[in-house]
Design a protein around this nucleic acid. Sequence first.
DNA 1: GGCAACTCTGGTACCGATACCATCGCCGGG
DNA 2: CCCGGCGATGGTATCGGTACCAGAGTTGCC
Lengths: 331, 331
Amino acid sequence: MNPTMRDVADYARVSPMTVSRTLRDDPGVAPEKRSRVLAAVAALGYRRNEAARTLRVGGSTKLLGVIITNIANPFYAQLALGIEDHADKRGMRVVFANSGENTDRERQLVQDFAARRLDGIIAVPAANQHDHLDPAGLAAVPVVLAASPPHRINVDAVLLDDFGGTYEATSMLIARGHRNIGFLGLPAATWTGSERYRGYVAALEAAGLAVQDRFVRRNQPHVAAAVEAANAILDQPDPPTAVFAANNRNTIGAYRAIRSHGGTTALAGFDDFDFADLLDLPLIVVSYDAREIGRVAAELVCGHIDNPSSTPLARRVVIPTKVIDYPNAAS
Amino acid sequence: MNPTMRDVADYARVSPMTVSRTLRDDPGVAPEKRSRVLAAVAALGYRRNEAARTLRVGGSTKLLGVIITNIANPFYAQLALGIEDHADKRGMRVVFANSGENTDRERQLVQDFAARRLDGIIAVPAANQHDHLDPAGLAAVPVVLAASPPHRINVDAVLLDDFGGTYEATSMLIARGHRNIGFLGLPAATWTGSERYRGYVAALEAAGLAVQDRFVRRNQPHVAAAVEAANAILDQPDPPTAVFAANNRNTIGAYRAIRSHGGTTALAGFDDFDFADLLDLPLIVVSYDAREIGRVAAELVCGHIDNPSSTPLARRVVIPTKVIDYPNAAS
DNA sequence: GGCAACTCTGGTACCGATACCATCGCCGGG
DNA sequence: CCCGGCGATGGTATCGGTACCAGAGTTGCC
């Protein structure tokens, strides 16, 4: 087995206490014994058992739990980077898990994290059901939500300006003369889905345009469905001259459909991506700093870790969005 | 503070042992006491302290450490997904950290992981210096490398067929009539860089073509440098009619350069990506299942966890590549 | 009826580290 | 010369669980 502190003590002919003090840089260890201890540590390849230390000191595990829906989505990868940025500054490590948009699994993961006594949890909730994310039921482990506000629980959240970004991009389409604008959205029950739709509707209304339901599709779980929905919109008589896609997947689907329809329909979408400027059709995207979301979420959760007495404030930090125009002129 | 097992025992008017047994599903607990205990657990919101349990049982932390260079790279995100796939089946969680291609940081992370008694480590090494990844110096924590073979240490590795993929893609360019083919590579000191270059050279030689150093650039750390290198190659008199780019970054750079040169140069590159079929120039990519790499690496490391006595075999599993042709005909 | 075997329960020690207190030797001042 | 005080060191209990063993109560079989 691994050497223990007692082994080191025996080897160095001192008591375990002296070893403990030495390794904690406690003053009041004679230089000579100190060096004997360090030599013993090196000789035995000793490494302190942090779990045991944590148990005794009542200290923290210095682990931050992160639950996201899918790390393969570049948005979440950036989020993860931002969280790690901040965690690392505090000597903390990050435990990642993918929920796969499944609330049951999300619940299991949260329970597991609490049992492991992680210091804090950052979650991108899969759905609207948030009871299992309430710190009150989780041994008071601080929780911060990202990308979606809490529902009936009292925790902080870092949000994106879903409404504003969509409003701005849609308005840009209108400013370019489009009057009939399609919408490929996310399920209405989700925060993001509802906010982005709200932004679309508000932009139309502000320009005195009516929302036409025949141009709206709101439930495409994958790219293939998005292609199909976009085709359905474009195949109508008197089709829209522009489309707004509420996320990455829908943008790709719309892009493919527009391409196969001759490429004359304007396209705007939420979520920027690499290569957006290398495509063969013009594109408008709503961009934002996903890494910053992670950084802020980590800051908030660390704030609660440092100061557990602070009652959850249900704060909401909103990260701004920026609309980017990729003209993608003929090459 | 959190309730302890003793609190539960007091509440249920039994001994701590009975609580412990109940929570471990030990048979031989009277049904009535059992239900009293479960009621007490629910009433107090008790959660067993896994760290304490691990300490006593001498068991494992059920944590797998993963060190990659940058999670924002979709390749590593997929790798991470594959690792989590397998870990999850065994009730393990995954601790991620980015080394940022910095060996010093990598060393710190590995030490930290060992001190936390993680059960195993999967690393994509930042460089050729691997001493710090030797399980012998890490409390015998099993280590598996991904994407790069071990150097002077005795551990398993999961590799990609860097040579074969490059050979095949380059050969495809040759088969299409190209005789002068540029190469945008990675530093020669890296395994991947050297293997991919070897594949390029071997394909040329097999076709009786000479390697022309004026068409080769091997050190572009970011996209801007790749653009510059590609421009330098294309601006020569009698430039190549095709270019092979040894990774993602170089492919993007080459793509931009080729586009600005009129778009007549053929392009092939290592690493597939979303949107590859939506660009406005034809493209050949070397594709592979990054998720599978992660899955296999996790399997290997779990094998060592289950059977610590097994001497490291320095096994090498090679994941195959597949060449994909995106004609990207005019839209 | 007696004794072994079995079921259920609780006491005690211990995993590896550290907080707290006791001890020991040494110093200077009264 | 003796005692208070200080710095260095070690003993002991403890963090939250669990392995091991002992003991109480019950049953079954000869």
